[in-house]
């Protein structure tokens, strides 16, 4: 085992790449739960984002349309969740589970119908990497961040912007108020229902951007179930990050680092003993548990998180 394997520039670059889709899902979860709606359909939103982004990229050959389709697909799935949980006051966990199953069934079904025997086309338009040529000469930094995908940078910007939005703006204050004390927020004139709808829709779009990153930014193709549970990891990252955008990013980076290690440490020996490649796979998960248990500990959800809100007329 060498330092290069543990903290080399390429490990850092990989960390950032692997953390991005999780951070975007976590960001979505944060926005939704801050308004008081639990959205475990992030995985589903990511997956439909992956798929419909690719479909439109294939049909239109226009990356902007493809991205728009990805976000719209994630948003529409989230809209179902919003309708169920806000308007119908449905059980938010059940609705979320249902939509995850729906997203997987639907994308797998359509993928087979549309691209079954051949796979998605090889000449898809894609979201390019951003080559920061001025960093070329700089050791370490150049390798670490010089060739990241555009969506990585957009994701980082979104983290900063939403952190400011939630905690430094009036609208953000209202957003959080709806998640903490919806009754009180309503008394001062906030439309709880509208705010929550906006939050859930935003969460779907954010998660779908994470999905688009995977399919249009990284893989340039779609395969069934390609999100592989990242929406759920994002959910964990959201809690780990204490329902803040910056915290969610931090948690995602820790997870991404564990994931990067499970690649870079392959073939490494400790005291002459080769690390079994299967056990290396546990690294991101164990690292996350240790980090949460060691440094973060208790985290408190928004007080009204998961509780349906009934306006006076309804109760």
């Amino acid at each position: 085992m060498t330092w290069e394997m543990l903290v080399g520039a390429s490990v850092l670059a990989a960390t950032l790449r692997l953390a991005t889709p999780i951070a975007l899902a976590a960001l979505g979860g944060t926005m939704s739960e801050r308004s008081g709606v639990v959205n475990i359909a992030l995985e589903g939103s990511m997956l439909v984002g992956c798929f419909f982004g690719v479909v439109v990229a294939d049909r239109s050959h226009n990356i902007w349309l493809a991205l728009a389709a990805a976000l719209l697909a994630g948003l529409l799935l989230a809209a179902l969740h919003a309708y169920a949980s806000i308007t119908l006051r449905a059980d938010q966990i059940v609705s979320g589970m249902a939509l995850n199953i729906l997203a997987l069934g639907l994308t797998t079904y359509l993928d087979y119908e549309m691209y079954g025997t051949t796979g998605t086309p090889s000449d898809l338009v894609a979201v390019p990497d951003l080559h920061l040529t001025f960093l070329n000469g700089i050791p370490y930094v150049g390798t670490a961040i010089g060739d990241q995908n555009w969506i990585v940078w957009v994701g980082l910007l979104l983290v900063a912007a939403l952190q400011v939005f939630l905690f430094r703006t009036v609208l953000g204050l209202r957003w959080r108020a709806v998640g903490e004390h919806p009754r009180a927020a309503e008394t001062v004139g906030v439309n709880v229902r509208r705010m929550r709808y906006a939050a859930v829709l935003a969460s779907g779009a954010l998660a779908a951007l994470g999905g688009a990153y995977l399919s249009l930014g990284v893989a340039h193709s779609f395969t069934d179930g390609m999100t592989g549970g990242r929406g759920f990891i994002g959910l964990a990252a959201m809690i780990f990050g204490r329902w803040t955008p910056v915290g969610a990013l931090g948690a995602s980076l820790i997870f991404g680092y564990g994931n990067a290690l499970s690649t870079s440490l392959q073939g490494a020996t400790v005291g002459g003993v080769r690390l079994p490649v299967q056990l290396l796979g546990t690294l991101p998960y164990i690292l996350t548990i240790l980090a949460v248990a060691g440094f973060v500990g208790r985290s408190r959800a928004p007080a009204a998180d998961g509780l349906p809100y009934e306006t006076e007329g309804h109760a």
Binding site: A219, N259, T263
Partner: peptide, 18 residues
């Protein structure tokens, strides 16, 4: 190397980059 997975594309990409 091994991606430790038969589904996840991103893991395959990371091994490839490495």
């Amino acid at each position: 190397g091994y991606s430790q997975d038969f589904v996840d594309q991103q893991k395959g990409i990371e091994i490839g980059k490495s």
